[in-house]
Amino acid sequence: MNKLDLKKLKLELAINAKSGIDFIISASIVWSAIAYIWTLPREPYSKSILTFYVGITMLPLALLLSKILKTKWTTKTNPLQPLGMWLNLAQLFYFPFLFFILRDNPDYFVMTYVIITGAHFFPYAWFYDEIGYAIFAGIISIGALVVAINVNVEKMYFVPLYMVLCLLLLTVWLIISNKRKKTRDNTV
């Protein structure tokens, strides 16, 4: 496979899946709910467990959004397509660290979860040939740490709010980028 063929395969995935925008919008909704959870007058451990429960809604919500936005999760003729699922599953290998934080320092659970989620965007920069994912992986991961260091633990809800802001900015980026890719694909 030459470089041009690989670029075409990645472009096909990006156009069909709209660069994963259904997942990014779903994540912004889920992280909004998580931000609300972290405003509740409960201990951090309980908020962390609720965060996991809310996180479960991510995939069904993304599936619903894929129907509304008319995105395709699978492109059977594209040999790169299964890689998308593998890239998503990769973040699960960071969860032992998340569970360690839950046990020993639940005040910083939400920050850790945001960092893991943000960092897992990085390989999608290659997968969709979309630099926005690489940029936001860094902005989210480093920014979550900076926010968490600069707020009291009682105001840790600012970390998921920061995540929502980043996800909304990434959504706008992807909308603009997807229009350009579709135009470029029509001219090829």
Score class of each variant (00 low, 15 high):
34 I>R: 03
24 I>K: 05
177 S>E: 15
179 K>F: 03
56 I>Q: 10
46 S>K: 13
170 L>R: 04
79 P>Y: 07
180 R>P: 02
153 V>D: 00
164 V>P: 15
33 A>G: 15
73 W>N: 14
11 L>R: 14
178 N>H: 08
160 P>T: 00
125 A>D: 08
132 G>P: 04
160 P>I: 01
148 A>T: 06
61 L>S: 07
158 F>A: 09
63 L>P: 13
2 N>K: 14
33 A>Q: 06
34 I>D: 09
89 L>N: 10
121 F>A: 01
67 K>F: 13
56 I>F: 14
87 L>T: 01
98 L>T: 02
135 I>L: 12
156 M>W: 00
51 T>G: 10
29 I>F: 15
11 L>G: 06
68 I>Q: 13
138 G>Y: 03
27 A>N: 09
17 A>M: 04
35 A>Q: 05
138 G>I: 07
45 Y>W: 09
137 A>K: 09
114 V>R: 00
57 T>Q: 09
84 G>S: 09
164 V>A: 06
123 P>D: 01
173 W>R: 02
58 M>T: 10
39 T>M: 12
41 P>Y: 00
117 T>D: 10
116 I>L: 10
116 I>G: 00
80 L>A: 08
113 Y>M: 14
139 I>G: 03
21 I>H: 08
56 I>M: 12
109 F>Q: 02
187 T>R: 12
183 T>L: 14
174 L>E: 05
65 L>E: 12
156 M>C: 07
48 S>L: 04
97 F>I: 15
156 M>Q: 13
31 W>H: 07
98 L>S: 05
74 T>H: 15
76 K>S: 15
44 P>T: 02
48 S>Q: 08
15 I>Y: 11
60 P>T: 06
117 T>K: 00
61 L>W: 09
8 K>W: 06
158 F>S: 01
27 A>Q: 04
83 L>F: 07
147 V>W: 05
120 H>L: 02
17 A>G: 13
165 L>R: 04
99 F>L: 13
40 L>I: 06
83 L>D: 09
49 I>A: 06
129 D>F: 02
105 N>V: 01
52 F>Y: 11
111 M>R: 03
181 K>L: 05
88 N>M: 13
142 I>K: 08
9 L>V: 04
80 L>C: 10
66 S>W: 14
135 I>C: 03
60 P>E: 10
177 S>Y: 07
25 I>P: 12
127 F>H: 06
1 M>F: 07
166 C>L: 07
150 N>F: 08
13 L>H: 05
125 A>L: 01
55 G>S: 08
126 W>H: 04
35 A>I: 04
14 A>E: 03
97 F>S: 02
126 W>C: 08
21 I>C: 07
53 Y>L: 10
168 L>P: 14
7 K>T: 07
93 F>I: 12
171 T>S: 13
102 L>E: 00
83 L>W: 05
117 T>N: 10
48 S>I: 01
186 N>I: 11
74 T>G: 09
146 V>P: 11
50 L>K: 03
29 I>Q: 05
29 I>T: 10
57 T>L: 15
125 A>K: 00
142 I>S: 09
117 T>R: 00
145 L>Y: 12
66 S>L: 12
121 F>M: 07
102 L>A: 12
99 F>K: 06
140 I>E: 02
76 K>R: 14
129 D>L: 00
36 Y>H: 04
181 K>M: 09
103 R>S: 11
63 L>C: 07
124 Y>E: 03
138 G>D: 02
124 Y>K: 00
126 W>A: 08
